[in-house]
């Protein structure tokens, strides 16, 4: 058991080391492009990835968040009703959605929707020799493939998290007016008074972090595929699992950090 945990830790650290190496290599390739006065990536590739990662994920994020917000309001509402404190529902739901649920659910949706796609396509390109072909041309395969993908997911996760937060709060307000006798106006009022800039900031910073984590893991897993079609499948599964668990662990660490230093 202990040796198993030991082996797991060692392989985890090795992977982390390789990811850092990939990041360093990508950054150095980007620097190389700058020094030659060429753009490190094509805007059209970036926009294409943004469209895919961002716009394409909106429906799923909205759907998920509305229903999670709705459920949260309903459950907390029925609990708080016992104590006659139903009016706390807007505050509880909006704060927890902004600080916690929004970024986390966005992270999970993106890891499974986009992280998996990144890993699969980069993995297929690796096993098909396309990555080597790009590298052999001398155009820097890593910066060409990784930069637009990473930037798209890194910059769009916060945007999607905001959409998720708004949808969650909307879901909560909807069910509150329907079943908890809280009007939309009162709900909004309560959200405005209870939600602090601090909460919003915490949510947004977390989202950037999650986007970065998912992008890095997905690209790394894709570019290090070995073993043909099966290898691509294994890497894709591993990419989603690793990204989701890392996001959840990082989320907890962030919460501890925020609670400790910014109470």
């Amino acid at each position: 058991m202990i040796s198993y945990i030991g082996a797991l830790t060692v392989s985890g650290l090795q992977e982390l080391g390789s990811m850092v190496a990939l990041a360093r290599q990508t950054i150095s390739e980007v620097g190389e492009r700058f020094s030659k006065h060429r753009s490190p990536f094509r805007l059209e590739h970036f926009f294409y990835q943004c469209d895919r990662a961002g716009v394409g994920s909106v429906p799923m994020v909205v759907l998920l968040s509305v229903f999670v917000g709705l459920t949260m309001a309903l459950l907390t509402g029925y609990q708080l009703r016992i104590f006659g404190m139903v009016i706390l529902v807007p505050a509880v739901v909006s704060v927890s959605f902004t600080r916690e649920m929004g970024p986390l659910f966005t992270g999970i949706v993106l890891a499974s929707r986009i992280g998996a796609a990144y890993t699969a396509e980069l993995g297929a390109m690796t096993t098909g020799g396309e990555v080597d072909a790009l590298e052999g041309m001398g155009l820097g395969a890593r910066r060409y493939l990784v930069t637009p993908r990473f930037l798209a997911i890194f910059l769009l996760t916060p945007c999607l998290a905001v959409i998720s937060i708004l949808s969650g709060i909307f879901g909560a307000a909807f069910i509150s007016s329907l079943m908890l006798q809280i009007s939309y106006g009162f709900f909004l009022d309560q959200v405005m008074t209870n939600l602090l800039v601090k909460d919003v900031l915490a949510g947004v910073v977390k989202s950037f972090l999650f986007g970065g984590i998912i992008g890095t893991i997905a690209c790394y897993k894709g570019l290090s595929v070995k073993g043909g079609a099966v290898g691509v499948g294994v890497a894709t599964t591993s990419s989603v699992v690793t990204a989701i668990s890392t996001v959840i662990v990082c989320d907890s660490l962030c919460n501890i950090f925020i609670i400790t230093f910014f109470p």
Partner: peptide, 24 residues
């Protein structure tokens, strides 16, 4: 080092055994 290596590579052309075209 990489920048130099990439410079050299632009003077080389490779026809791969499996073509290795960008499939997309």
């Amino acid at each position: 080092a990489r920048p130099k290596l990439n410079d050299v590579r632009t003077h080389l052309g490779m026809v791969y055994q499996n073509a290795a075209l960008i499939s997309s």
